[in-house]
């Protein structure tokens, strides 16, 4: 084994790593925003819009991420949508992530007792104020583990972007491997690299959870134990 191939190509590897971080971060951000929008619409829209969103979610969940990427990158141009590999990768990750994030947000919204919204509405707060001031702050703490978990999963999907030639870590290192025939060394480096990224992400998540749930978890448990039966006459 000769790991000098790694140091010889350090700058390429470094830029590939940055592209991985950028597409990962961008994909998570796009997915979270789109997912939140989907979840809010699902909660407030009529049955038709809800049905359309449900179909979107089911279709994205039932198809492989790679096929979605191919559709976007190779199929897009015939619909007049020509994207660079990088943009296609970002958009693809965002779309793929949006449905899972939407499900996480929806669960979060529904786990907050309805009575809290009623109390806010009776005090005259508007629907937006209720979402932003009452529901989202509580929900974020509840769904933090799920958010972190899916963020890690999305990170593990980023190597797939190499198949549509996004110059991220996997693309760069397999390229170096093919060029120098140092397959084992480069693949080992990839394994270690992604493993460390996943670990880092979950450690960061655990730290965040501990900070965020300090005052709320106890309350949530108490509320669950109460089993509210608010509208029972």
């Amino acid at each position: 084994m000769d790991f000098t191939v790694l140091t010889d190509h350090a700058s390429e590897i470094g830029s590939g790593f940055l592209v991985t971080l950028w597409t990962w971060g961008g994909g998570v951000l796009a997915g979270v925003i789109a997912g939140l929008v989907i979840a809010v619409i699902q909660l407030s829209a009529g049955p038709w819009v809800r049905g359309v969103l449900r179909c979107y979610i089911e279709v994205i969940r039932a198809t492989p991420f790679l096929v979605q990427l191919f559709l976007l990158y190779y199929g897009g141009p015939s619909l007049g949508l020509s994207l660079s590999p990088m943009t296609a990768g970002l958009v693809g990750l965002g779309i793929y992530g949006s449905v899972y994030f939407a499900e996480i947000f929806r669960t979060g919204f529904t786990s907050i007792p309805r009575g809290q919204q009623e109390a806010a509405a009776m005090l005259g707060m508007t629907a937006w104020q209720i979402i932003w001031r009452v529901q989202i702050p509580q929900m974020l703490v509840l769904i933090l583990p799920a958010l972190v978990n899916f963020t890690t999963i999305l990170g593990k999907e980023t190597p797939v972007l190499s198949i549509i030639t996004v110059p991220e870590l996997t693309f760069v290192l397999t390229g170096v491997g093919a060029e120098t025939f140092a397959y084992v060394e480069t693949l080992l480096a990839l394994c270690v690299g992604y493993f460390l990224l996943a670990e880092l992400c979950s450690r960061l998540g655990q730290w965040l959870e501990r900070r965020a749930s300090r005052y709320l978890t106890q309350g949530v448990q108490q509320r669950r134990a109460l089993k509210p039966r608010e509208s029972a006459a």
């Binding site: 593990k156 999907e157 980023t158 190597p159 797939v160 190499s162 996997t170 397999t174 491997g177 397959y183 084992v184 693949l187 990839l190 394994c191 992604y194 493993f195 996943a198 670990e199």
Partner: peptide, 22 residues
């Protein structure tokens, strides 16, 4: 569990594909 869940499947597949012949 943490190794095989932590490393992306594509990398695992490539690893096996290139490593076994070696």
């Amino acid at each position: 569990i943490s190794v095989f869940r932590g490393i992306p499947l594509l990398i695992q597949l490539l690893f096996i594909y290139y490593l076994l012949p070696r």
